[in-house]
């Protein structure tokens, strides 16, 4: 069953197909977030490719933005540095392109962006250029489906995924609305709060995933606060994907040679990748 009524030839969701394939393997996806342009565009490409090679199944490329209200201090710092280094919105497309080439299209690259940079670029133009770069779609933390008419139209037109968010505060009506509007997966915020690592993943996450599925979503991935393999194993039990951001960005902010930072990133990704593989006790375990 599709979460949308889309009947166009481009109806097959890139990210949804990837999540289905992993589901068949009996495990959740590891979805890794990294900001484009930190510490500069070239090295951000190295970092994303390193994460892919170390086991990220899906990547989110962040557009650095001046006012990231859904992000905690770690991602704020990286975004600020990326902007100070002169990162432009179009550079994000270069990072996306690099992932698409490197993985031969196997690893979906979603762009995570606050809404104003897309508005300014032009919603349809951005969708067109993202599709041309081999991108899978957008995650939009400050765009709710109610305000997303232009983006819903443009993403249909260009065959892109639309990842909207739900939160523990979402009502059943809003879960249904968001599930219907989304394509690829629904992003369930594990807790009420902004991005950042936490000792515990919110205990409302499992219920939220169940409620979101009941509201009609095919795929639900969980983000906010996951930082260790153990947490990934816990979340991977009930979610289609485990989204990790700050825990990947933090090693890149360390005051060490770049090669060492990349090694630390690889180690973190490997630990998380191991976590999602442990979650359900092997192939075919299903959801």
């Amino acid at each position: 069953m599709s979460t949308t009524t889309d009947t166009s030839p481009a109806a097959m969701s890139t990210t949804g197909a990837r999540l289905d394939a992993l589901r068949a393997e009996g495990r959740a996806a590891l979805v890794g977030y990294l900001p484009a342009g930190f510490p500069d565009v070239e090295r951000s490409i190295e970092a994303v490719l390193a994460a892919v090679d170390a086991g990220a199944d899906v990547v989110e490329i962040g557009v650095p933005y001046t006012d990231p209200v859904m992000d905690g201090p770690v991602i704020q710092r990286a975004a600020e540095a990326a902007l100070a280094a002169g990162t432009r919105v179009r550079d994000v497309l270069r990072v996306v392109e690099a992932v698409a080439e490197h993985s031969g299209g196997r690893v979906p690259a979603l762009v995570m962006t606050y809404w104003n940079p897309v508005l300014r670029y032009g919603v349809d133009a951005f969708a067109r250029d993202l599709a041309a770069a081999g991108g899978a779609g957008l995650i939009t933390p400050d765009l709710i489906p109610d305000e997303g008419g232009d983006w819903i139209a443009a993403s249909q037109e260009h065959g892109l995924d639309r990842v909207f968010l739900v939160a523990p505060s979402s009502t059943p009506e809003r879960l249904a609305l968001t599930a219907r509007a989304s394509r690829g997966f629904v992003y369930a915020a594990s807790t009420m709060g902004v991005t950042g690592t936490r000792d515990q993943v919110g205990d409302r996450a499992e219920q939220l995933v169940a409620d979101t599925r009941a509201a009609g979503a095919d795929h639900v991935c969980v983000g906010l606060g996951v930082s260790s393999g153990a947490q990934a194993a816990e979340v991977g039990r009930f979610a289609d994907g485990v989204i990790v951001g700050s825990a990947l960005v933090r090693p890149l902010l360390a005051d060490r040679p770049w090669a060492d930072r990349l090694d630390a990133l690889r180690a973190t990704v490997a630990d998380l990748a191991d976590g999602v593989r442990r979650a359900r006790g092997g192939p075919g375990a299903g959801t």
């Binding site: 933390p141 400050d142 765009l143 305000e147 939160a167 979402s170 809003r174 968001t178 915020a189």
Partner: peptide, 12 residues
């Protein structure tokens, strides 16, 4: 105008 905010705030 509108409501360009995270879903988490919509209920409030």
């Amino acid at each position: 105008g509108g409501r360009f905010v995270p879903e988490a705030l919509i209920a409030a």
